[in-house]
Design a protein around this nucleic acid. Structure first.
Length: 616
DNA sequence: CCCCCCCC
């Protein structure tokens, strides 16, 4: 019986730099494996073992085809036709990257006894004997590029050479290599061209370090197969910064591919491009390259997202605040900052913070619609948004969501009252809580310690449901300045009066304010927390000044009863964890900023989520 | 070859 598989394909890929054009191989999947290196966006990657009946070879499936694996269409012993693919050499191993495929009907039986072509190289740990027939593979890096390219010319873009036609380079100077999908780029090949849209471009940043001074910029390219970040230094900034416009399509070739530094970007690619002096970039007017796709989260639904998640948001700029400046605690550098307020049909308003040059140059007094991609969700004031380096914003974009918002705002939104995200759900507890508002992430005391919240340079915020086990009676307050303007600074007893350094005056008597030290616990542990005046007063149900009066009058029963009443009560504590030092040892101070009746609904939702994580 | 994504 004739095999339905494309005989000889594996050997061709393995040994040749020139895979024939127009070959659309049919191969059998021997295994599918999820790779334990998901992209920054959390997208899974799948590796396939592909057989032509005689040999097998490794394959990768482009992420946009993952659904075929996830719904089991592509599975062990399934036959697939590689409608679009490239080949690739990675560390001497050949890899087929599948960009498009069709399922070929088959009865599910394994065909032949395929052998591992890589055996003789000793790169793989399989047990089958070496394949004597296969000639030694080419070892030099980039050997796969030619093969991939050849396959490419006919196939990438797919539409009968349409891509190739449009891909005709204006200059035709150097040998810039074949058109490649972004998905197929790797450091082991140097002859390639991508045709991709710039979806994001940074400012030019200047830096100076031990190696000297320099400048750089970065941008993100996107095509139908994926996205990749690119960075240029010094001369390449002069060469390309102005040329590369956000939203436009370019050919890029003769650049270096490096391993991506993931900690600095959320672009979903293992690699990134580095522009070099010989890099060639040319504009291209092919509009078929995809545009930025948005996945908008309604402003009223931001409470569904976790802190630090990235999301896309579109809204009308209701307010633009003054330009401000903050000093980073980590670097001591000042940063320009500007808050704007966004609203949408949900009736909810959210604050979004712009940074640096974007903050300085932002001007929009005509309440435009702005679409944001990849902004970071914060939990300050319930929910807030912050621009991220790789975030983009598009003013009055020509998309349906923007037109609909514009129409709504001009017709009715303009005169509407909006609900701001707030932390006001605290104190009200339960049903009366402000809609959409959600306090900081829920953590048990054990989690707060395990995750070392407050141990880094930054302050961490969290909410914890816990019970007051003990309230310290000895020192519960400090004598504060009596100035009615609310100075609240500590004052010193000078005998003749209580002196405030800040106000430069003395008072007959101080006003006592709380610094209440409490031990609180939940099922995972206990910690000492401090509550200041307003919060402590709420817990103690008496002002610090009145409590001090009871103490001074020697009314021990009444005095003690307030502490007793406070003990044993359960609250939702809004906590702030911050590092400071005590006897030169770093330690975390837990400050309670607010308390509320325990939010049982939120707590059980949180527990349900934890349970579902366990039971996967 | 950079790189902090900040602050209340």
């Amino acid at each position: 019986m004739a095999s339905p598989l494309t005989a000889g394909f594996c050997e061709l890929v393995f040994n040749s730099n020139e895979a024939p054009e127009g070959v659309v191989p049919v191969l059998q999947v021997l295994s599918v494996k999820k790779i334990n290196a998901p992209g920054a966006s959390g997208t899974d990657r799948y590796r396939l073992i592909l057989s032509d009946g005689k040999y097998f070879i490794q394959g990768m499936i482009a992420t946009q085809l993952n659904h075929h694996v996830e719904n089991k269409e592509v599975d062990k012993h399934v036959l697939i036709k590689l409608v679009n693919y490239v080949t690739n050499a990675v560390q001497g191993r050949k890899l087929v990257i599948i960009l498009n495929l069709e399922i070929v009907p088959w009865n599910g039986e394994k065909i032949g006894s395929p052998q591992n072509l890589e055996q003789q190289q000793g790169t793989s740990g399989g047990a089958s004997p070496a394949v004597a027939a296969a000639p030694a593979p080419k070892q030099e890096p980039g050997a796969g590029a030619g093969a991939g390219g050849a396959a490419n010319r006919g196939q990438f873009g797919g539409k009968g050479g349409g891509a190739a036609a449009k891909g005709g380079r204006a200059g035709g100077k150097q040998d810039v290599g074949p058109l490649y999908p972004i998905e197929g780029l790797s450091p082991y090949q140097n002859k390639w061209t991508i045709k991709a849209r710039v979806t994001q471009k940074s400012d030019i940043k200047h830096y100076s370090n031990q190696r000297g001074e320099g400048k750089l910029f970065s941008c993100t390219f996107m095509d139908e197969t994926g996205e990749i970040r690119a960075t240029g230094f010094n001369e390449t900034v002069d060469n390309f910064y102005n040329l590369l416009e956000e939203g436009k399509v370019f050919f890029v070739s003769r650049a270096r591919i490096n391993i991506a530094k993931k900690q600095f970007s959320n672009v979903n690619n293992e690699y990134e491009i580095m522009f070099e002096n010989q890099t060639e970039i040319e504009p291209c007017d092919d509009e078929s390259v995809p545009q930025v796709k948005y996945n908008f989260k309604g402003i009223g639904d931001l409470g569904e997202l976790q802190k630090d998640e990235l999301c896309d948001v579109i809204g009308v700029v209701k307010e633009v605040h003054e330009l401000g400046s903050v000093t980073s605690k980590a670097t001591n550098k000042p940063f320009a900052k500007r808050d704007i307020q966004l609203v949408d049909q949900s009736g909810q308003a959210v604050r979004l913070t712009l940074w640096g040059k974007q903050a300085e140059t932002f001007s929009a007094d005509d309440q435009p619609v702005i679409a944001f991609k990849g902004v970071k969700v914060g939990d300050f004031g319930g929910r807030s948004l912050s621009m991220f380096s790789s975030a983009t914003m598009s003013v009055d974009p020509d998309i349906p969501e923007a037109h609909s918002l514009r129409g709504w705002f001009d017709a009715e939104g303009r005169n509407k009252q909006f609900t701001a995200y707030t932390n006001s759900s605290v104190n009200s507890g339960g049903a009366g809580a402000a809609q959409g508002a959600r306090p900081a992430e829920i953590k048990t005391i054990g989690q707060a310690k395990d995750e070392q919240l407050g141990m880094s340079d930054k302050t961490d915020y969290f909410t914890t449901a816990a019970t007051i086990a003990f309230v310290k009676q000895e020192t519960f307050s400090y004598p504060a300045c009596a100035n009615p303007d609310g100075c609240n600074k500590k004052v010193v007893d000078e005998g003749s009066g209580w002196r405030c350094e800040k106000c430069d005056r003395s008072w007959d008597a101080p006003i006592h304010r709380y610094i209440l030290s409490m031990n609180v616990m939940d099922h995972t542990g206990q910690f000492w927390i401090t509550a200041f005046n307003d919060t402590a007063e709420q817990l103690m149900e008496i002002s610090a000044n009145d409590l001090m009066k009871l103490k001074e009058e020697g009314n021990d029963n009444a005095f003690g009863s307030y502490f007793q009443k406070a003990t044993g009560k359960t609250y939702s504590f809004q906590m702030m964890a911050k590092q400071d030092s005590f006897n030169d040892q770093p330690r975390v101070r837990y400050q309670c900023r607010r308390v509320a009746a325990p939010d049982y609904a939120a707590e059980s939702a949180h527990l349900t989520q934890l349970i579902s994580q366990i039971s996967v």
